[in-house]
């Protein structure tokens, strides 16, 4: 490699670094900040397992929890449903919230399948619909989901594992992270419910 080529290569790397750095430090946080004000808002129409439509206006009926998952999920999704059950037990007011489990795998998770799946925890509604409307909803919530093939036609879904909290007016207020400490999570719910 000539000296000139080497210099060019190094400057190329520097340029890549600078762009990456700008992304990490400036652009990416700003995108998150912009999205934060309107998380959950946008045009999407899905179907909830109680027979109602799930749209952005569903978020402004009562304080609500929204989380994303799929039934072919070995761990995170059952854990989160179980967590919600323990939160309800600790905080009876939490039973009055609207709780939505939105599938990121609408092809396999039909309404009938979801209904029994979430039915294990009182008050949780499953949400499914077309691929297209699901995609719109994921974008509205800023949720990442991607299909990962396992071979032989099987696949799993990478997906965001947080539970989103919305106040009674449908404004995003907070999120409970996966495997959040129990007391912290209950504290976040109390703050949301003003109790």
């Amino acid at each position: 490699m000539s000296g000139r080529t080497l210099r060019l290569a190094i400057w190329g790397l520097v340029a890549v670094n600078v762009v990456a750095l700008a992304w990490v430090m400036v652009i990416s946080p700003r995108m998150t900040a912009n999205a934060a004000g309107k998380i959950g808002h946008g045009e999407y129409t899905l179907a909830a397992t109680d027979g109602t439509a799930f749209t952005e206006t569903s978020l402004s009926q009562a304080p609500s929890l929204v989380f994303f998952g799929f039934t072919h999920c070995p761990d995170v999704c059952p854990t989160t449903l179980g967590d919600i059950l323990t939160w309800q037990e600790a905080l009876p007011e939490a039973r009055d919230m609207n709780i939505y489990f939105v599938t990121v795998d609408p092809t396999r998770d039909t309404g009938d399948i979801l209904k029994d799946y979430v039915g294990w925890v009182d008050g949780v509604r499953g949400v499914t619909g077309s691929e297209e409307e699901t995609q719109k909803a994921l974008e509205a919530f800023g949720v990442y989901a991607a299909r990962v093939d396992l071979g032989d036609g099987d696949y799993t879904m990478d997906h965001s594992a947080s539970v989103f909290l919305f106040d009674k007016d449908g404004n995003y207020s907070d999120r409970i992270r996966y495997q959040e400490d129990f007391d912290t999570a209950v504290g976040q719910l109390k703050a949301l419910l003003g109790t």
Partner: peptide, 25 residues
Amino acid sequence: LFAVATALIVGASFASAGDVQHGNK
């Protein structure tokens, strides 16, 4: 310059990855 930029990027990535590694497993 390259070293510093790389270190910053690596550091920033670790910082954002680090805060999800919590919770009572």
